[in-house]
Every structure is written in structure tokens, then in C-alpha cells.
Write a protein that binds this DNA or RNA. Structure first.
Lengths: 344, 344
DNA sequence: CTGAAAGCGCTTACAG
DNA sequence: CTGAAAGCGCTTACAG
């Protein structure tokens, strides 16, 4: 691979002037610039980043540790957001798939120190608490998670608002007996959403305190889905719900199965809504699933902005708003259209 | 951050001897080594990789471009396999999420040149043909894909074997009228699997040529799933199948829905098997889905081995074998146990 | 507008 | 077993 030295020789000029052209510095004669650019082209010269890093003492690298992230669709959006923000600042993302507290995580943080990363972003697959320490000389930003002592800047989805909004919409469309098939109680999002669900009922004059149930549970360290069994049970009940809000799209999938087996059709005999907007699940379900999309791209973007502009505020975690992606599942033929409250 | 110079001063020795200790070279006096290690500890010294790279002219970096990969579970295994193999050789993975032929891909390849990557692995989400060119001075390895001219070493799953094996198992357990709800015909895996399905029938004395149908299609550049409609249609038919093999777990999900709505229970009234073993789908379906796992970890590992040992054979693509992950869906109460052919 | 010199933090090549 | 010198490919700081 060619060096600036070789380019300079071919262009009959000095290394420094070549460096000027490469770094788009002004004050270079047009003719000299042309000659240098031609030489660069001819030799296929590319700057050697390691040399630049060493001399300028700037690595321009930001580490992105994805904890379990790659197992779901959400990772794409988190990484894309961070990537786009990074490129805006001329920074380079260094991406790692890690396991919390595990060997890969340790090695990734080690590598990032060796590369003199300027900041580190730590992202999790779902909203939760983590235990992690920053490496020296690089701010740590938490993405979709937070630390117990709120020591680090963090960005999470606004679970309360999301549940409040989707429940309000459900009620606005006619739901009288909505049930919330929630995430495991041991999650962070679960209780926040339960509160949003209940408060939205309260705001509309509905008492929903008894309508929240667990659709999943953490058993033996593993996340177990019980949406199918719970849905089958409540749909067999005399006072069955007219709408089911699911804590995640996977639970909605199980509700679809249980509904079909109970002879009920989603979007006609029972309304269903959910959280996540996860591909491909949403596209596969018939009818299409109405679900609250989590603002992963925006979260990733915000995290990178914060990583590159340290000194800003640290805690509490910034809660980014969620939006409903409306398809066909949030409907019930039993809801009389006249009863839908109008909004202006 | 401390340098070897500072460590040397503190340990009252020379930079070179510090370098010896750091690189585990022999021929260092035990006492000197101890002093140096203590100094390293005290100063929190970490080697500066950029400096090492520049002097040794070895970047130790391998690029991993994940095309659409992060949208599915398969990515984890592909990356993990490559990661593990890389660490075995003391190499570092540089991971990028890219879009084929897009801006992110161009930028990623550019970055890898600037970092003087020693090899590049290009991975796709599903088995297909790609158009891509290697960057100078770094071998390109294709993972889960291949190029038209077989110019590059490639690793793909053995789709023919996978379909042959799962179909044989289906027939062995009693299937008489299996139907294959295949991927879109325009995919690479689709036709290979169709052949495996038909050949397995032939080997067992069953004519399955007319039993292959498309469960998905590429329409307007997008992959569209039709598993629900097709399954609903064939299950309503007088001569309905006793088993459905699905081209991917997502199609199986749609078959579960259509079966439930037709009043049929998977694993009892209709047997279902599939390809992918994708999380979390497989864990969510009731009953659990029996499916051919694709050897993603092994493929990733093999790709990295090939990347770091160039000069080996190039074409045709290496086809890695798939294995059945058996759960409860590959059963049908109508299959008399006595009719199951015995194997010894 | 241009260039010579120094130095970033290491490892290489060599001499003791 | 140890160390002084040179150099990897750049950018910085400075002088013209």
C-alpha cells in the first residue's frame, strides 16, 4: 500500500502538502492539488488510520456493546441510529456482541481500551438495569438500560406513556373490558406499563386495576412465555375481555393462536394490541398486528450524540416517546361505532 | 494513558525490556519482569494498538459485513462462530451492519481499507447470490451467500441434504401425503430443498412432484409471505395433507394460525416441520416446532478459518450439514405406529 | 502557498 | 539477559 511519501515523490512535492490535500486544508495551489490528487488516484493511496490515530492522539472510535441485542430486530434500529450519528461527527463505530458480565464483554472492553476508544455505548435487548463500569478515559452511555446508581447517562423508552397512549386509544375505539397480558413483573417495563394501563382506564372512567395479568415469567433464569395458556383461560371465561393488550409482539402471537383455537378471530371477535413492532412477526400475523413501536432508532441516535458531547446531564434516564403502528388487530365488531368518542 | 517509556522509567529499565515482558518474550530476568509488571499495574498501562499496528505492519483486524443479518436470530450464531475463531488466532473482528450495494456497505469497505484489514467476511441473512468485490490486499470470504463467478471462497448450508433428511424423517414417522410449503421459487434454497423433498419421497416410494407449493413470493422487491392463505386453502381441501413441511419457521407460524382456524391441531391432526430453528418463534409456538437448524455457528467459524488461512480452495461453495431439532409438531395421531418403518 | 524537522508509541534489527 | 537506534506513516508546530 502506497504512503504519502510515495505520493509526494510522484507529485513532485512534499509529504506535508500531500497531507494538506488529503485533509482538505485550504492554502494549496490548485495545480499542486490536481497533481497530488492524480498521484493518489494512480497509486491507489489510502491513508493509514493507525498512523493518523497515533500522531493526532484521537482514535475517533466509539465502542458499541450489544448485549443480547443481535437476537432481535430491535438491534438494527439501535445500531443504525448510533451509526448515523457517529458518521455525522466523523466517528467510527466498533460493534461487539456481548453477554452481560461474560467473557465477550470483558474482551470487548479490553479491546476498546487498546484502541483508545473515545466513548462506549452499552445497549441491551430489553429495558432493564445493568451492572457495568466505564473504562478509563471514555464516557459510558447506557442504551435501553440504566445502572442502579444512575451514574451514567441513559436512554430508555417511555413505557408508561406507551401503555397510557395505546390503552387510551383502545378505550376510545370502544373497549369496555380490556385486559393487559403484561410482561413478567420482574421486568422494568412491566410495572411502568401496568401503571400506564390503569391510569388510562382511570382517565376514561374505567377501573382496570384487576385486569392486569402476567403473560410471561422469569423461571430458573429463563424468560418463559405463558401467553398461550393465559389467553386460552381468559377467552374460555364467561366474562371474557373485548380487547387484549399484550406486553410484546411475541405474546400477541400466542394470543392469536389461542384465539383461533377458541374459535375467535382477532380484529373481529377480540381486539389485540401490543408493544415492539418487531419484524417479521408483525408482518406474519393475520390480521396485521397494531403495536406500539419502540423508538430504537431515535434512542441509538441520542445515545451517540450524548457519547460525543459529554458533560451534559447524566440522570435520570431520558425517556423517549413511543408511537402506535396501527394495522388491523385493534378492532372488535362488537364495538358499536356510535360509542367511539370523537376527538377534534 | 501511560506509555512503555513511563513504565520503563518507573521500573528502572529500558523500553525494549518492557516490550519484551508485554509480548511474553523469554529471556527476561525474573526480578526485572516482576518490577515491570508492578509498574504496569501501578500505572494502569495498556498497549496502544495503533502504534503496534503501525510498527508491525499487521492490523490483526478482520472485517465482518452483516448484510441484513441483524434482523434475525441467525446473525448471532454467524458472528459468534466467526468471533470465536478470530480470537483463537488473536485477531479482532470489526463488525458492520450493511445494506447490499448501499451506502453503509461502501463506507464499511472504505473503513476496512483505512484500518488495513487483513480479510473481509461478507454474510447475508439468507442463502443467496451476491455481487461484491474484495478490497485490495484482503481476501474476501462469503458467508451464507456466493458470487456468480465463484471467485470467492463461500460457505452455505446444505439445503438439499436438509430437505432430504427432514422429509425422510417425516415419511419414516408415517407421512403419506406430505406437502412442502416452500420458500419463494426465486430463492436459492427453494429449488434445492424442493429437489431434496422430492428425492426423499422417491427413495421411500412416494411421488411428491406435485406436492411442492410456494409459501412466499418476491413481489415488487419485497418478500411476501403467503403461508396463511395457502395453508388455509389446502387444509380446506378434501384431500388435505397429513403433514406440511414449511420453508422457514415464519411460514410454520402462519400454518399454525391457519390450522387453528380450520379446527385442526398441529402435532395431532396435522404434522408440521420447518427450517431455521429461529428464536423466539420456535419457543412461542404451541406445540413446539420441529425444525431443521441451520449450521450458522459452524459456518461462521469455518469462514473465519478460511479468512485467516488463505490460499486454500475457493470453489464451489462448501455446503455445511443441517440437523433436526425435534420438538412436538412432527406428529399426527392418524399415523398408525405400526406403519412407521423401522430402522436399525 | 510550501516544506524540513520532530514526534506519536510502539517493534524491528542489531550490538553488546 | 539488556539496551540504543531506527523507523512504521502520519500530523503538529514552526519557519520560510
Amino acid at each position: 500500500m502506497a504512503t504519502q511519501e510515495q505520493v509526494a515523490r510522484l507529485a513532485r512535492t512534499s509529504r506535508k502538502t500531500v497531507s494538506r490535500v488529503i485533509n482538505n486544508e485550504p492554502l494549496v495551489n490548485e495545480k499542486t492539488r490536481k497533481r497530488i490528487l492524480a498521484a493518489i488516484e494512480q497509486l491507489g493511496y489510502k491513508p493509514h488510520l493507525a498512523a493518523r490515530v497515533m500522531r493526532s492522539q484521537e482514535s475517533n472510535i466509539v465502542g458499541f456493546l450489544a448485549n443480547e441485542v443481535a437476537t432481535t430486530w430491535s438491534s438494527t434500529a439501535l445500531v443504525s441510529g448510533a451509526q448515523d450519528a457517529a458518521w455525522k461527527y466523523g466517528k467510527q463505530l466498533m460493534l461487539f456482541n456481548v453477554d452481560e458480565g461474560g467473557e465477550r464483554e470483558r474482551l470487548a472492553l479490553e479491546q476498546l481500551q487498546l484502541y483508545r476508544a473515545e466513548a462506549v455505548i452499552y445497549a441491551t435487548r430489553y429495558h432493564r438495569k445493568v451492572e457495568i463500569e466505564a473504562i478509563p478515559d471514555a464516557p459510558l452511555i447506557l442504551l435501553n438500560c440504566f445502572d442502579a446508581h444512575q451514574k451514567y447517562t441513559a436512554f430508555v423508552p417511555d413505557d408508561y406513556q406507551a401503555a397510557f397512549d395505546v390503552t387510551s386509544e383502545m378505550i376510545k375505539r370502544g373497549a369496555k373490558r380490556p385486559v393487559f397480558l403484561n410482561l413478567a413483573t420482574a421486568t422494568v417495563a412491566g410495572p411502568l406499563r401496568a401503571k400506564g394501563f390503569i391510569d388510562a382506564g382511570k382517565a376514561a372512567g374505567l377501573k382496570l386495576g384487576g385486569n392486569v395479568m402476567e403473560g410471561a415469567a422469569i423461571e430458573g433464569g429463563h424468560y418463559q412465555f405463558h401467553g398461550y395458556e393465559v389467553a386460552a383461560r381468559i377467552l374460555a371465561d364467561r366474562t371474557k375481555p373485548d380487547a387484549i393488550l399484550c406486553g410484546q409482539d411475541s405474546l400477541a402471537l400466542q394470543v392469536y393462536l389461542a384465539s383461533a383455537e377458541a374459535g375467535m378471530r382477532v380484529g373481529r371477535d377480540i381486539a389485540v394490541a401490543s408493544f415492539d413492532n418487531e419484524e417479521p412477526t408483525c408482518r406474519l400475523l393475520v390480521p396485521g398486528l397494531s403495536t406500539m413501536a419502540l423508538p430504537y432508532y431515535e434512542m441509538g441516535y441520542a445515545a451517540m450524540e450524548a457519547a460525543l458531547n459529554p458533560g451534559a446531564k447524566v440522570s435520570p434516564p431520558s425517556r423517549l416517546p413511543c408511537k402506535l403502528v396501527d394495522r388491523q388487530s385493534l378492532a372488535n365488531d362488537g364495538w358499536a361505532p356510535s360509542k367511539v368518542p370523537r376527538r377534534r
